[in-house]
Design a binder for these strands. Structure first.
Lengths: 225, 225
DNA sequence: CGCTTTCTTGAGTGTTATCAATCCACGTGG
DNA sequence: CCACGTGGATTGATAACACTCAAGAAAGCG
């Protein structure tokens, strides 16, 4: 269904800035390949990373009501994106309630994910913030990969973890070491393994927001056909 | 237009829990009167406040894809809410693209507001977090009140500020005192005055997300009629 | 195999948290 | 109208967690 929106394709290298802050809002993107993140720079070196994106994600929906982009979009790995122009969304909304409903739903789910991250940054200790982010990413990856275990590709450098969690790289490194000593995770290079997921979920009060969905909502939204 | 959704009316006293966590998702609410907030309890006394709501706000949209509510909803002041049942949204989506589009847009804007709050909690110092929240609330109030100056009703107790900003009541009190000594704000009882809004906006890198909207988006969304 | 980037580790500092006491505003009832 | 009680706010003293600065180790890349 989302294939409707995947017409064009653009490739990027790792570390490329796909879109800067205050660019004109021209299109949304479907992530075909690669990992990305969105971030704000505070101007004095501080940076907050807001969301991570993986293949299958829709990027930039929430910029649509604005003339200028709120945040920059940067690749973590080589990526392939399918841009879909803003002005061509009108016709899509007119002809396909299913696509409209799906985009609406994605945006609502993403919002809840952001609320969880707010909780994490606002009220969890450094170690738990790290664990919470890993659980969230895993939960997202499970949508497109049922078989995903507790050991998966995780190409987020420590500097980016820090900026995502409101911490510093030094704290990430130390907290990682502690989590490993406690036997809770193994995180080497660009891979992570959650050795005791149940314990991590409990500590961080994790909720699987991508799962536990109410299927009746989709029929409500799309009109039952 | 939103009047379509305001049929029923329910009143609450200050401090009432409108909806607990893990309740069944039965309806969204339009705030007719009063201030509210949504929050998660972490179980050990810690709490994170996620959003504040004022008259005119739509509450609970992002719970729609779920069977159970993600967060509790509590009143700060006496409030009047207009619940609108989830199962009756289907017909609304079918008949009114304008309402659908408006709800979608609200949800996108709220998402960007949350991203700003994430930045605030993740990367700003205590004093700036307080200022940022005040600016955000003011910006929201300006939608329904053009004439709003820099002095307005602000019924958020310090304990709730703390839980919203990832701080403690003690820090709120001390930071407030400093902001006042610096002549940046005056905050007494349930009123606040921003004495140097330009300076506060600069310090906190504040963006007026409720303003600066792209009006062309609405015609895109609603089909140009 | 060097160069660069990322990560780790140590030492010292700082912002915010914690604990606890006091103060103040406000509502209540005598 | 004033005493009293309650919950919220302030203040002081101390502690903890994360930050900063800085040096060194490891990993990635040409």
């Amino acid at each position: 269904m989302m294939a409707t929106l995947e017409e064009d394709e653009v490739e990027f290298r790792a570390g490329d800035v796909v879109r800067g802050t205050s660019d004109e809002v021209e299109s949304i993107y479907i992530v075909k390949e690669g990992w990305l993140f969105s971030a704000v720079e505070l101007g004095d070196g501080r940076r907050q990373i807001l969301e991570f994106f993986v293949p299958g994600d829709v990027v930039g929906l929430h910029d649509l009501p604005y003339e200028q982009t709120s945040y920059e979009l940067v690749t973590l790995t080589e990526s392939t994106l399918c841009p879909f122009p803003k002005e061509r969304l009108g016709p899509v909304f007119e002809t396909s309630r299913a696509v409209t409903g799906l985009l609406f739903t994605f945006s609502l789910i993403d919002h809840v994910i952001m609320l969880d991250r707010l909780k994490s940054i606002g009220r969890l200790a450094a170690k738990d913030r790290i664990a919470h982010l890993m659980l969230t990413v895993r939960s997202r990856l499970c949508i497109t990969n049922d078989e995903l275990g507790d050991h998966f590709f995780f190409p987020i450098p420590q500097a980016e973890m820090a900026d995502a969690l409101g911490l510093t790289p030094v704290t990430i490194s130390r907290s990682k070491a502690e989590l490993q000593q406690e036997g809770l995770i193994r995180w080497q290079r660009r891979e992570v393994e959650l050795l005791d997921r149940a314990a991590l979920e409990k500590r961080t009060r994790f909720d699987a927001r991508y799962q536990n969905l109410d299927t009746s909502w989709f029929t409500t939204l799309c009109g039952g056909y």
